[in-house]
Design a protein around this nucleic acid. Structure first.
Lengths: 148, 148
DNA sequence: AAACGGTTATTCGTGTACGATTGAATTAAC
DNA sequence: GTTAATTCAATCGTACACGAATAACCGTTT
């Protein structure tokens, strides 16, 4: 009886852990032609929304530590989608901006979420429900993570 | 209009990506006293269910490639929770079994999911709903991943 | 029995992911 | 106006995560 709570099949966390990786894997073939990984793709989505964004703010938005974001942005710069420039008003800070190549990507890459939605065959209704439920879970998790 | 589908806030995948990591982080302080990481914890949950399990079957059950599972099981062996032994009937295969220390862990570690549920404050109803919906999404994802 | 095709666990290379530390730069305190 | 505390991005060490390659092994076919 008591052991049931240790059954893998009963674990919400494992579903999230597993599904998250499957989702990343589902994006992989679609992102291939843009030479992007999923974390790099998500980072680009945030850069698209800003045109010029603080490196720190970018990391916060993607919920990654700067230690993780540093190599991601460096790779995106190497590919040619973004530029890193020092903030003249505060030499500790770094701006991230789109290159022309990055702006071009912005218009072209819309096919990725469209194609994935097509493949996933999730109804608009279920999609919305899941988003809402996950947002509630996210709020609860933020409470848990607040206190040590 | 068309750009809305690139908005991070509209992405189901990003919620899963982000929440999955937060969930792992929420487990961290609870697993600390057992010297386990979250992937190691999940692996132990499967070993608990079997007493003796094929290495390959273990990796499949946790949805990890053997290349990922190898160092995880090696670490668990080093800690002292499991033993790796060759299958005498097939020298390519490896069995994973619980040590006495591992069996002791099985009875003690039930406090982890209990304490997390306590902290999360998710109602039984919402928990069940989320599990069902995630299982549906999982099935759809399996279809997507089947075809290249 | 030698060769072949398939399976298995490991190794390797690349890319996250993060805590801790570092070094540079800004701000606050006195 | 120097010291102290804080902030920032990068670096380091550890731990996943996986594709590809590898080496050992198995069953089968010739």
């Amino acid at each position: 009886m008591e052991q049931d709570i240790l059954q893998l099949d009963n674990q919400l966390c494992f579903r999230l852990y597993s599904i998250s990786r499957k989702m990343t894997k589902a994006y992989e073939p679609l992102l291939e032609k843009y030479h992007l990984t999923y974390p790099q793709y998500v980072t680009m989505l945030v850069v698209f929304e800003h045109e010029k964004i603080d490196f720190k703010e970018l990391a916060d938005r993607v919920n990654l530590k700067t230690a993780t974001m540093t190599p991601i942005v460096q790779k995106l710069e190497q590919i040619g989608y973004v530029r890193r420039e020092k903030n003249p008003e505060d030499n500790r800070k770094v701006f991230v901006t789109l290159t022309d190549e990055g702006k071009s990507l912005n218009t072209r890459i819309t096919d990725v979420p469209i194609e994935l939605a097509q493949r996933l065959q999730l109804t608009v209704d279920k999609y919305a429900t899941l988003v809402d439920e996950l947002d509630e879970l996210d709020a609860l998790l933020n409470n848990v993570l607040q206190q040590p």
